[in-house]
Amino acid sequence: MKRDSANVIPLARPDAPAIRVTKLSKTYPGGVEAVKGIDFEVAPGEMFGLLGPNGAGKSTTVGMLTTTIAPSGGSAELAGFDVVAEPLAARRISSVVFQEAVVDRELSGRRNLDLHARLWGVDVKTAATRIAETANTLGLAELIDRPVSSYSGGQRRRLEIARALVSEPRVLFLDEPTVGLDPRIRRELLDVIAGLRARNQMTTLLTTHYLEEAEQLCDRVAIIHQGEIVALDTPRALLAGLGGEIVELRVEGDAGAALALLRARGIASEDALNVGSTLTVPLHNHGAAEAISAISAAGLKPLQISSRTPSLDDVYLRLTGDRIAVAA
């Protein structure tokens, strides 16, 4: 028997990182290696993103941190509580918003929130106050006594976020919270999630395959690819590695030879790459106009050429040779 019990749950350890993951791995029966020895730490109050396409290992990582998936190796702690040795304590200080809809549809919104509060040990009076506050904050006050089956997708998502907040978790997991929502509701929800940053010292781990979510919301982003973290830094630092602008051109014929020519002329650096007939050229020493002129002067006749600011998709492309949108 582990040292957890329903009655004795120690307080969170304030000096520990909110999340500490050390050589964490998961191999499913059948030999599929979903997570391959990843390491990261998340500080209290930080909003941390796990960015990657479907199948990259994001949800498996969240599953291990929320104690619904058993790690095959390594360790993970929430506020110092080991998720394998002290699962109840780890669950006591965390909440999850799941990728799929996870609600009791036949019950009212209020009852869903109240159940969470009771299971997380919030006393009745405090729970009632928090439910009222959270429902107001998330725009649910008018709906809260209706059965959840009558909610729209966006309303249900907001209810699930409200439910996760009722226990005032130290660590909040948002697993692909905007998947399946239409663009307008998605934007609304991003505002809601951005608003969570204001909550006192709550750490948020957000998984997403939407680049703009990670860029807009996260203090730091870990890019995960085939179960491994291939980059981890602030969005600004990740983007800075690609220079100020990117020129993208589509060429006829041998794209590899065209890339070699641009490198030889000093237009492209080692981080430029080609996928099919498209060359992606981060600009470190030139402006876009200067680079486009140099490309013409080099004798290349692109079928299409454009410039833009770098995105995390370019970071992902440089690191993995694929685009998140394609991989997703």
Partner: peptide, 16 residues
């Protein structure tokens, strides 16, 4: 299609 994942994430022994 229900709330079982939420219950599994709750700080109570799963036998309950």
């Amino acid at each position: 299609s229900g709330a079982q994942p939420e219950l599994l994430a709750a700080p109570v022994p799963r036998s309950l």
